[in-house]
Simulated scan of single mutants.
Amino acid sequence: MQDDYTAIAEDFLAFLAKNEKTRLYNDLLALKAVHDMNQDTAYYTFKNIKRGVKKYSERRKRSFSYENDQHVELKIHQIHEQHFFKNAYRIEVSVGNHECGYVIVERLLEQLQAVPVRPFEYQEALI
């Protein structure tokens, strides 16, 4: 299955415009930082009583969407979900019509970093 994600990442990036690759690279770096910090964490809060009374709610915190020249779309959604008073973070990634896990994000980053580039071609955004 890991090889499938590598092939999907290669195919998607092969037809992505150069400026979109730069934007994707920076967005994936930011996504990785947030995901590393929030994965496998859950917390309880009584701050939002209205939402806490509901059995389940979810809110998209950040979404990314990229489409290559072959009209294959990469969608990434960072989601904050709440079950009663328990809050959690999760991520949804899809390429085309296929649901993928976070592994595809790692494969895309590997592919973008593995390509020999000229200096300053991929510019990391300073936060």
Rank of each mutant, 00 (worst) to 15 (best):
Y56T: 00
T41G: 02
V117R: 14
A30T: 15
H71Q: 14
E58G: 03
L28Y: 11
Y89D: 13
T6K: 10
L28C: 14
S63A: 09
F46M: 12
E10P: 01
Q78G: 02
R90G: 03
N97F: 04
L126F: 02
R118A: 14
I49M: 15
T22Q: 12
L13Y: 03
T45S: 15
H71W: 07
Q82P: 06
K61E: 12
E20F: 03
N68R: 06
K50V: 12
Q111G: 02
L24G: 06
Y43Q: 02
V95I: 08
L31F: 14
Q111S: 14
F15S: 15
E20S: 15
V53G: 01
L13F: 01
Y5D: 14
A14G: 02
Y66M: 10
R107E: 12
H83A: 12
K61V: 10
V117K: 07
A125V: 04
D11I: 02
A114V: 00
A33S: 13
N48W: 11
V105R: 09
I76D: 12
K54E: 06
Q70G: 04
Q113K: 13
H35E: 15
Q113C: 04
L31K: 08
L109K: 07
H98F: 06
C100I: 00
E99L: 06
Y89I: 11
A14T: 09
K47R: 11
R59C: 03
K86L: 15
N87V: 10
A17Q: 13
D40K: 10
T6N: 05
R90Q: 08
Y66H: 07
T6M: 05
